[in-house]
Nucleic acid binder design. Sequence first.
DNA 1: CGCAAGTATCTTGACATCGAGATATAAATG
DNA 2: CATTTATATCTCGATGTCAAGATACTTGCG
Lengths: 179, 179
Amino acid sequence: MKRLHIDRPLTLIGMEDEVDRLVAAWRRERPDLDVEPLEVLSRVSRLARHLDRARRLAFSEHGLEPWEFDVLTSLRRAGAPYQLSPGQLLTQTLVTSGTMTNRIDRLAKKGLVERLPDPSDRRGVLVRLTPEGRDRADQALAGLLAQERAILAQLSQSQRGDLAGLLRQLTAPFDNIPG
Amino acid sequence: MKRLHIDRPLTLIGMEDEVDRLVAAWRRERPDLDVEPLEVLSRVSRLARHLDRARRLAFSEHGLEPWEFDVLTSLRRAGAPYQLSPGQLLTQTLVTSGTMTNRIDRLAKKGLVERLPDPSDRRGVLVRLTPEGRDRADQALAGLLAQERAILAQLSQSQRGDLAGLLRQLTAPFDNIPG
DNA sequence: CGCAAGTATCTTGACATCGAGATATAAATG
DNA sequence: CATTTATATCTCGATGTCAAGATACTTGCG
């Protein structure tokens, strides 16, 4: 079972990161274990955490929190009349129903969304973006894309394509077989 | 500016995921924007969220929360005598100092770590793993690796290596230029 | 030596999230 | 139809996180 990346001259081809140090530490402390999975998945988790911080900063210029952006843009993407059920918002944002109720309450109080009864199902509710909510979503999206482009400048166009494809193979099972 | 992945026959080469749907929706609603960055970074964020859930499940078999695992394994990796300062734990776990104080309090109450005065700096504290804390960390790590291997079975060995390398290029700036 | 600036950790209060259960309605079954 | 089962959303209590500031100690510099 050959392992990749052992003794790879990182200083010549790029920077070392915290996960390299983490993996090296495990190999020293637990040489009996194969910790190769961490090379991928610990990087995913740590990068996501860094991205959260960066996004929080980018959105603060537009007076939005990351969770507000997530809800508003889900509605924006739905297209006119910019409305979805709370349940549809759940699957897009990966939060629980209690959280989504709370988010909708707060966004409604700020005037960025409004709640309407679902005409075809009396249990249901539709959440609709207000014109101001739509504008805020559009502005924040532009800012986010600018920031993300800067982060991705580390990679060539084809590398970005490769990376997206590899990540898709990992996310697809979660998104399709309901996890 | 040619875009990759347009009209790619996903059904033949793999599954579509939520981000494919998200990107398609943006291209319909905002054809004026180049949303290619989302192909990579939205997948990172969503995958991390799925991984959090999966980890929570895996650790619950060992009676640990993800945050407990993060702290205990940071100490475990440090090697005997399994101790680090709260500050060192901060940089490894990417949380704030208030959070770390709280985590250490709770882990100490459960008997998994103990706080010692730093002999060389009277402001400082050292956090040390107890023998039970060490055992719990080792057990949970084995469980985590098994689960992660299952998730990564979607990819070949060389694809995993490629993916790790691409992710490293994105994480390195965050981990090296203090962000 | 003595003071200013820096560092390490902890405290506090606000807030977002989760999970479990409650409520109301819809769909399926016989 | 009546009854069971499933679905959609909301309520509520507990908990973890963050940000900002407080405290205590250390280091650098004149």
